[in-house]
């Protein structure tokens, strides 16, 4: 009887759990630290290349776009205006919730009619918000016009 008891005691000792408390302590410190330093907002960039010699907008406008569609979208306070050679000027009213979708639909119809054209100019006014410009750039790219030029409307 006594002998058997001893045996079970030894068995219990072997079956015992691992001593994980020190590891727990380590995790408790490490995890909050890593969580604090983790980046949850992923950043990306929009790359732009500016011409080196002359960077004035007038030059951009002249640069090798004679036979082109000269497609441009102007961001005005109350509407987006899509203009170009050989296409009807279209105005998309702004302020609505679907302004971006409507602009995209209008641009897609233009891009569909002229599939060879990949260039578009975005003309912004002096007071146009940066956010709006980035938004329009996204829409334009989504509409299949990846070659974007950024110009300023004459505000002087």
């Amino acid at each position: 009887m006594l002998n058997r008891r001893k045996q079970t005691a030894v068995g219990e000792l072997v079956r015992d759990d691992l001593e994980v408390l020190p590891l727990m302590n380590l995790f408790v410190v490490l995890i909050p630290m890593l969580l604090l330093s983790a980046v949850f907002v992923e950043m990306s960039v929009i790359r732009m290349n500016l011409p080196f010699e002359v960077a004035t907008e007038e030059q951009n406008e002249i640069d090798g776009i004679e036979e082109n569609l000269l497609l441009a979208v102007t961001i005005r306070e109350e509407q987006f205006v899509i203009e170009g050679k050989m296409i009807p000027t279209t105005a998309v009213p702004r302020g609505g919730e679907n302004e971006r979708r409507e602009l995209q639909a209008a641009l897609e119809s233009v891009a569909g009619a002229h599939p060879e054209n990949e260039e578009i100019m975005i003309i912004a006014e002096a007071e146009t918000k940066y956010d709006t410009i980035i938004g329009v750039m996204d829409v334009v790219r989504a509409a299949g016009l990846p070659q974007i030029s950024l110009l300023g409307a004459n505000h002087r």
């Binding site: 907002v41 992923e42 950043m43 990306s44 960039v45 929009i46 790359r47 732009m48 290349n49 500016l50 011409p51 080196f52 960077a55 980035i134």
Partner: peptide, 16 residues
């Protein structure tokens, strides 16, 4: 200004 100072390759940072 960046372009005139020799930094012609500009990246605009945005949130994905």
């Amino acid at each position: 200004t960046c372009q005139q100072s020799g930094f012609a390759s500009i990246s605009l940072a945005v949130i994905k």
